[in-house]
Each structure stands twice: as structure tokens, then as C-alpha cells.
Amino acid sequence: MTAVTVAGLLGLTACGGSGTAEGAGGGGTEVVASFYPMAWLAEQVGGPDVSVATLTEPGAEPHDLELTPRQIADIGEADLTVYVKGVQPAVDKAVEQHAKDTSLDAAAAVPTLPAPSGADEHEHGEEHGHEEGRESKVSYDPHVWLDPGRMATIATALGDRLAGADAAHAAGYKARAQSTAARLKQLDQTFRDGLKSCERDTIVTAHAAFGYLADRYGLTQVSIAGVDPSAEPSPARLSELTRRIRSAGATTVFTETLVSPKVAQTLAREAGVRTAVLDPVEGVAKGSGDDYMSIMRRNLDTLRSALECS
């Protein structure tokens, strides 16, 4: 399907960023990944047998992604598109229209948690969504990649799908999926060991991205914004958060790497606590030398310091 045909079908205009997916060289099986964590997983499991193209540019906030006609065509032409339904509505729409049978929704491969309603993960609603329709409406929290245990399950599912799409290299896909899942399970155990004995258990986050991590390791997430990291809280919400920080004895308000830290810094000043970066692993800047595993390990160190874990 050509880009012109796809553009005509969807009636879309191009957005900012490159007109093609950000690619990583490799083998003959073409994989399109929606954003960094799915690209990392595809590269680990696919190895030399795949070429991975990422729709979200390095360092860009994935929730804001719009697709160019060329990127929509890439989704339609790929052997497999790997994405998380509910994170990027433009990708969800393109997959629904052009890649229903050639896609893997990572959120469908694992048990999901209810969607946060508003800014607090414990106030559950039937749907969640960004303003102006920027977020797909789903009944679950889509941030599944922040639980290494769930990522291990997704790795196995991805290995099976790649083996089905490219039978000649099936053994390699399955072996790499098993190896990747084992590394992720070890990371999960490292988190369990590192967070099992802490002075406090409340994490105050910039947006409601860490529900799976909190659920996995017995923490309580209190978020400034909901699923949309760009949403700004009302003065009343900031006052409520200040009270909750003091009540919980929290020492830290966590900022992120891809969104402005100003609101979190303001809240931290008001509450008399410090700030630190807790990375939702939604994107990695070019040349940083980081990957999913190194960022998650750094997150663990940050949490242990903030929660005063022994």
C-alpha cells in the first residue's frame, strides 16, 4: 500500500518529526515498533533476523505522537507491528485499519490493571483519556513495560509471533525470547530484593505511569498528573498532594526525563522535599548509552534512596 493511498484513506496531514520510522538495521523481517520499550524488546528478541523501525523519534514524548503518511504505510507493510494499545492513539488507529493481523499489542499479552481515573491510581474509572482525544480510551493502565515480570511475558509472546512470521528463523527467535525473558525475570528479582525492606512505600510521580511497578513491589503511587504527562493539576490538587506528601512522610517528588519538571519542582518546594528523576522508560536520547535494563536499574537505585531501603 503506498503512502498516497494510505493518506487518502485516513485524510491525515503530516506532523512534526521525520517522515519515516526511525530505523535500526538488521535482517529481512521488518518490524515496526511504536516507541522505545517495544523497539528495545523487538531488537533483543529479533536479533540479526529483523530490521526494527521505531515510530517515535529518540527523546520524543510518545504520548504526543502523530503519524506521517509514510509511517502509516510502514505499519501496513511491516511483517509485524509491536505496540501498546492505549499509549498512542494514532498508532492504535493505524493498526486497526492496516495491521490487524500483523500486529502484537503488548497489553493484550499480560494481565492489566484498571485505568487510573484522574491523577490517583486508586480512583478507578471505566475509561481514561487525554484531552482533545489524544489518548485512546481503554479500560486499563497501558504502562505494562514498567513491570519487568510482565515484560518477560511479552518477550515470550513476541518470540512466538516472530517465529510464526518467519519460520526459517523460528529457533533463533524463541531462543532469544527465552534469554531476554530470563534477564527480565532476574531484573524483577533484583527489584523485589531491593524494595522488600524500606522505611516508606509512597512514590509521588509526575504522571500515573508507575502503577504496575507500584503494584508489583508493594508501593503506593500518588501522581501529579493522570495518564497524560502534560496535564497540569489545579491549585486544589497541588494542595491535596502537599498534604498527602507530608502525611506519608515522603522525601521525594519524582520528575521525568521527557516532560517539564516545573510542576513537580513547585510541589516539592511547597512540601519541603527534594526531587529526583524516575524514568518511565518511554524514550531514550541518541548517544546516551542507556537501554531499558540500565534505566530500570537506575530507577531502582533512585527508589531505594528515596524510600530509605536497607
Rank of each mutant, 00 (worst) to 15 (best):
G133R: 09
K93A: 15
L184M: 03
W40K: 02
T13L: 02
P58I: 02
V263K: 13
L219H: 09
A271R: 07
D193N: 15
G211P: 12
E232L: 09
L162P: 01
D105S: 05
M296L: 13
A90R: 08
A21C: 11
Q71C: 09
G283P: 07
R237N: 06
H128F: 12
R244D: 11
T81D: 06
L184R: 01
G164E: 14
L303D: 06
A171S: 14
R269W: 03
R274V: 14
A231S: 13
S34Q: 04
E77L: 11
K174A: 06
G23E: 13
V95Y: 12
D201L: 00
G118R: 05
E123L: 10
A90D: 11
G159Y: 08
F210T: 06
S230Q: 13
R183V: 01
T302L: 08
A157K: 11
Q265E: 15
V31R: 00
A165K: 14
G28A: 15
R244A: 11
L10T: 14
A73R: 15
E308P: 00
A3K: 14
D193A: 15
P69K: 02
V82P: 00
M293F: 14
R183M: 05
T13N: 07
D279E: 03
R150F: 02
A78C: 04
Y83H: 12
L258E: 07
Y83E: 01
L104Y: 06
E61H: 04
T257K: 11
